[in-house]
Design a protein around this nucleic acid. Structure first.
Lengths: 208, 208
DNA sequence: TTGTCAATTGTCAGTGGCTGTCATTAGCCT
DNA sequence: AGGCTAATGACAGCCACTGACAATTGACAA
């Protein structure tokens, strides 16, 4: 952010993002045209598509931030932790700092509302899931490196990550459709869901 | 298929599907326009959109068939089996009959090629993943009913299904990018991946 | 068989996402 | 100040998709 030029670009991007999020969360994603967004910022439509590859990208930009934060948290975990435990801890502890990370870009409240829009808009949910798959691949490589394994040769890294992500997705969904929709609620939900994974996989559901 | 009218509709739909699949698998999904497809069948573009909600739906139609077959297989599992085992058996055994199910609509070879197109086309992969989520919800309800539980109250049904689906997705990906791309290869891959889930979740990766 | 009704299809016009191209503007640097 | 380059705008065009209405075609009874 040395140049005036750079600062201006930054400001344009942020303005577009804010306007998009505001419109998406109020009017809905589908019922908001790109023209609506650019009109609010007073730039040409072409400019929008120079900052965002497509409409989806603008909608998912904030989530991307949170995701990157989580991946970093996993990388920062002490190497002696077992893979599953490292993932679990990264989520639980990463939640504390997440608030600040998001707030530095947009109001957390806007982030939360956008999350609900994503979960309830088919095309956005689809894009979100695909992106999650890419993250899974990245996480698998992190885990593999921690354990000194080859991702291509050993199935386990991708498997733990897949299982973990599966649980997280169920949690997310429950969270986004539930009553208590805040960051704290998400953390406690995460913990209780992860606790139930073991029991759910064992054969005897009747004994407890 | 009583009426001539009904038969004609059926034929039009099949013709569109075949043409679409053929073009998607040879020219690629993105580089095939709907106009290309309708030109091959000689109907209006509007007609295409009367049979398929969108371009994606045509691309995913065959996979949908396989998915439905699998869900039925789960429903048919004996009630005394543990949830995870029922899911596992449904996949493994369902594979035998899958060949016939698919062949009754399109050549299996076309199905397999289409599968690779889906996995390698971002927008199709995204749509496929979203659809998988809906299937997961359906499966969770099946499992819950088998066990006499309330899906909303007990977390475990959704959790097993999520874990299982996560593993299946990893398997699919490996399969679609691997060398041996046939139905038999998929079954053996599935088995070996599911065997590794247990080991992957335990903490001690070094002891075996 | 024919006439009427309903379902299927075609045509057309239009919207919205997205891209390539080229001219214009605006910050940068000597 | 003036030339260079990056950012933007303006415009034309492609493609997916939709609504509306007219034309066609099978169904079915008189």
């Amino acid at each position: 952010m040395e140049n005036l030029r750079e600062r201006k670009k930054q400001r344009t991007r942020e303005a577009l993002l804010r306007a998009a999020l505001e419109l998406f969360t109020t009017r809905g994603y589908e019922r908001t045209t790109v023209d609506d967004v650019v009109a609010a910022v007073d730039v040409s439509q072409r400019t929008f598509f120079r900052y965002f590859a497509n409409k989806e990208e603008a909608a998912l930009a904030v989530v991307e931030l949170a995701v990157a934060h989580f991946v970093d948290a996993v990388r920062a975990r002490p190497p002696h932790e077992a893979p599953m435990e490292a993932l679990r801890q990264a989520v639980v502890e990463g939640w504390d700092s997440l608030n600040d990370v998001i707030e530095s870009v947009v109001p957390v409240e806007l982030y939360l509302r956008m999350y609900q829009v994503i979960e309830s808009t088919p095309v956005l949910l689809a894009a979100h899931l695909r992106r999650s798959m890419e993250i899974e691949e990245a996480l698998a490589r992190v885990i593999a490196e921690r354990e000194g394994l080859d991702v291509e040769a050993d199935l386990r890294p991708r498997l733990v990550v897949a299982v973990f992500s599966g649980v997280m997705r169920v949690t997310e969904r429950q969270w986004s459709t539930g009553a208590d929709f805040g960051l704290d609620a998400m953390r406690s939900l995460t913990v209780s869901y992860l606790e139930q994974v073991g029991p759910a996989l064992t054969g005897d559901w009747r004994t407890n």
